[in-house]
Amino acid sequence: MAETIIEIKHLEKKFGNNEVLKDINFTANKGEVVAIIGSSGSGKSTLLRCINLLEIPTSGEIIYRNNNIQNGSMSLSQYRTKVGMVFQQFNLFNNMTVLENCVVGQMKVLKRNRKESEEIAKNYLDKVGMLQYINAKPKQISGGQKQRVAIARGLSMDTEVLLFDEPTSALDPEMVGEVLEVMKKLANEGLTMIVVTHEMTFARDVANRVVFMDKGLIVEDDSPKVIFTSPKQQRTREFLSRILRE
């Protein structure tokens, strides 16, 4: 049995009367790459944001290694260092250089000293191919470069799981490849990743599991092979035939 890192039980999220997530049950095991697919408004980004508690779930439990996150058995800050997030809009700190972006969290949250933080940051910036740009400010580099720095920022925190919220959706087409390459590399190195994506090729080739969501529900959760070749649910089939035709 694989080691479970994140477990979601009966998660619900309402915005006012709008029920965005309905009874979500989901687990992510160590070393797994889970792709969450589905049409816009299906609740996949909200699910990801709930996992990192950027949105507070209306009900349900989020369990990280046997710690129920919402009842305070582990501090929110501590939890978030373990479960990092990469955003569609990068969200790099505009007032800091590339290096500083990857250092500030280590120093403030993990209380590492500057020297150690910089070493760790440089190590990860090298991994994403951005070591040359440590002095640049976010507004001076391209979208693809920003996203690679954002990934390095997450990794610098000793993250165990990295959540990706449509990491390539805001990029120019020619920059999508470089970000997916980095993600592929991390997947091969055994990083646990939950990726909300519209990149079906990535979901098919890199993910170990594909979760299809529709109208706030998990419709199907299976291996990419099953999802892409013989999905069991009618809705999954419709979605895939629609999106793969494009």
Binding site: S77, M85, N91, G154
Partner: peptide, 14 residues
Amino acid sequence: DRGQTEGAYSIGMT
């Protein structure tokens, strides 16, 4: 931008 705050929260900052 709200994203700046979320970026900071996402790495555990208070």
